[in-house]
Simulated scan of single mutants.
Amino acid sequence: MKTNILSKFFAEFLGTAVLVLMGCGSAVIAGPNGTTGVGLLGIAFAFGLSVVAMAYAIGHISGCHINPAITIGMVIVGRMKTGEGIIYIIAQIAGAITGAGLLLLIASGKEGYSIVANGLGQNGYGLSSPGHYSLQAGFIAEAIFTFIFLLVVFGATSTKNIYGSFAGIAIGLSLVLIHIVGIPVTGVSVNPARSIGPALLSGATAIDQLWLFIVAPIAGSVFCAITWRYIFAED
């Protein structure tokens, strides 16, 4: 049975909301300054496991992009139409904002929580970078990490990949790997929607720096899609 576009919209909306709530939530609620202190490795796995969980929950409905960079890449390589891609991106951004809103509601339930001091897991560079990395370092990291992430996505979901049933695991673990290396640099975006949600609610510097976490992942996505289409093309 063919899945209708409304089902795909809500699947992408829900999947992205879960990614932001659980991924960013691991940093805000259970991170180094949280109750359980899962640390950098725990945060990295929270993002990756969110993708794995959603891949098997909604993958059969929408493909589980939950990331505008992936959707843009899929349009470029010819795996989806532009109109459908736009609907996906709208759903992803709406889902990310909803996920960030839910996280704020939960985090605010703890006495002493301040969105200014504790944030919502937003991305940043310079003084807003976890490791105080520069704008240039942040841009290069986000573009390259997105390229690597999309390369895994294209390969894992290829019709010629005999291990296709494990695509969700491969994609999720690649995101874990990227976070282990990239969290100190920018907090890791590689997903414009994931950055937009927390930034809009956090305001101030997060919004001022948001452009990088939209432009760099899209640049990495476009470069990877072109590379895949003209160098690793399936046809």
Rank of each mutant, 00 (worst) to 15 (best):
L40F: 14
R79K: 14
V77A: 10
V77Q: 12
S50W: 02
T36Y: 12
M74K: 02
L40T: 14
R79G: 13
A44I: 13
T35S: 12
G59M: 07
R79C: 09
G59I: 06
G83E: 09
E84I: 00
I43W: 08
L49D: 13
T71V: 04
A44S: 15
L49Q: 12
I66S: 01
C64G: 05
G78M: 12
I72V: 15
G59N: 07
A53H: 05
G73W: 07
F45Y: 15
F47M: 06
N67L: 02
M80I: 09
M80N: 02
H65Q: 06
I43K: 06
G42Y: 15
M74C: 05
V38M: 13
I70L: 10
V75N: 05
R79A: 11
I76K: 00
G42A: 14
T36G: 06
G85F: 00
F47N: 02
M74Y: 06
T36N: 06
M80R: 08
A46W: 07
G59V: 08
G48T: 13
I66L: 07
P68A: 08
I86Q: 01
S50H: 04
T35V: 10
I87T: 11
I58N: 03
V51G: 12
K81W: 04
Y88H: 03
I43S: 09
G39Y: 08
I58S: 03
G85Y: 00
K81T: 07
E84Y: 00
G42L: 15
A57D: 06
C64H: 10
T71W: 01
A69L: 11
I66A: 05
G37P: 14
G48L: 13
G78W: 10
G37W: 14
G48H: 14
I89M: 02
H60F: 12
A69K: 11
G37H: 13
A55W: 14
N67C: 03
V38P: 04
I89N: 00
H60M: 07
M54D: 01
M74L: 10
I70D: 01
I86D: 01
G39I: 11
V51I: 15
H60L: 10
A53R: 03
G73I: 15
I43A: 09
L41H: 11
K81D: 14
G48Y: 14
R79D: 12
G59T: 07
T71P: 01
I58E: 03
I43V: 15
I86N: 01
V77L: 12
G37L: 15
L41I: 15
G73R: 09
K81S: 08
I70A: 05
H60I: 05
Y88V: 00
A44V: 13
